[in-house]
Amino acid sequence: MAPVPPLTPLDAVLDLTAATSQVELDRSVVRLAAALVAAEQITLYHLFQPDGGAADDPEAPTTWVRELPDGDERPITALPHCAAAARSGTPQPLSLPGGGVEVAYPIAGDQGLAGLLTARYPHLPDDAQALLAPLLTCYHHHRRLLLALEHDALTGLRNRQTFDLQIWEVIHAAGRPTRRRDEPGGTICFAMFDIDHFKRVNDTFGHLYGDEVLLLFARLLGRSFRQSDLTYRYGGEEFCVVLFGANLERAGRVLERFHTAVADHPFPQVGQQTVSIGFTQVRPDDQPGDLIDRADRALYFAKAHGRNQLCAYEQLVTDGELADTSRVIGGVELF
């Protein structure tokens, strides 16, 4: 059998550009980087600010890093070589207690730092930087393209197409133990939002002000939920959020704060706006349609009973306000 030729930087770039989602892209760059430089371990990090500040500012005191595609989060100061690489924009080595070295490579973005990649070696290779540079540059450009495809142009939130792709991953994560500090037990809730009387905004003030309401509403979503939660523009004036590490009680508190934030926010020209919210807990055996239907039924109840409120599907069933249309026969849930 002929020996397998070594992976070249061009081969790696071609392989990387085949990724069709951010999660796939993140996994690919880790796999390809390890093959290129024969590293013992590769780790990819994104920078973010828990307080909503600029994610690419390594000097900010609250800068955190998130291990990708779905790992731990920690302050960047907990990884001194990563903090040094972020500040300097150059690779920074860290000698390991048991021998070997780990190097943090900054991933340059359009206006600052896009992320970091660390590689662990028994001995530092001379050509590692030259081999990784084109791969990391291509990673940044392809990630920017995928971000544009996966996000709504007006609000910047994830779009409906991305929701349809990611909701299966959310369901599979329900009830599954995870390492993430914000996902104890894999408990997840799903909420749908509808801006009340939005058609009246468009009819009265015009679509330009309607778009501004949507944009400001999306910004409130971004400030009200954690970086680890998933926010989407579902369509029109409808939005949805996946809340990780949240049972119904905790989700209700978070959603009530957001409900109040919307009511208290001054929307230019339009004045006060309110929102109706329906939410439910994600079940490990859900189909996407089941999950959406439960949240949507709770949302419809909220709108049909005065709007400007939030309703949990499970509580509505317990109170006798809604009939639970699911039934279990032989361990299989039917509708």
Results as ranks from 00 to 15, higher is better:
Gln272Asn: 14
Ala263Ile: 13
Gly252Leu: 06
Ser276Glu: 03
Glu249Gln: 14
Ala261Thr: 04
Cys240Asp: 08
Phe258Gly: 02
Phe239Ser: 15
Thr260Met: 13
Ala251Asn: 02
Cys240Ile: 08
Val242Arg: 10
Tyr234Gly: 13
Arg253Phe: 06
Gly252Pro: 02
Arg233Phe: 12
Gly245Met: 08
Thr260Glu: 07
Ala251Val: 04
Phe267Asp: 04
Thr260Cys: 12
Glu249Val: 12
Val270Arg: 06
Gly278Asp: 00
Thr231Met: 14
Leu243Tyr: 04
His265Asp: 01
Glu249Thr: 09
Ala246Asn: 09
Glu238Met: 11
Glu256Asp: 10
Phe244Ser: 00
Asn247Ser: 06
Glu256Gln: 12
Phe267Ala: 15
Asp264Pro: 04
His265Cys: 11
Leu230Gly: 07
Glu249Lys: 07
Thr274Phe: 12
Leu255Gly: 00
Phe239Leu: 15
Ala263Phe: 15
Ser276Ile: 03
Arg233Gly: 11
Glu256Trp: 04
Gln273Met: 13
Thr231Arg: 14
Pro266Asn: 00
Asn247Lys: 02
Val241Arg: 00
Val241Thr: 05
Gln269Trp: 03
Leu243Met: 02
Thr231Val: 14
Pro268Tyr: 05
Arg250Pro: 04
Gln272Pro: 14
Leu255Glu: 09
Asp264Gly: 05
Arg253Ser: 10
Phe244Asn: 07
Glu237Gln: 07
Leu255Ser: 05
Phe239His: 15
Arg257Ala: 12
Arg253Tyr: 02
Gly278Thr: 00
Glu238Lys: 14
Asp229Thr: 03
Thr274Asp: 02
Leu230Ala: 12
Glu256Ala: 06
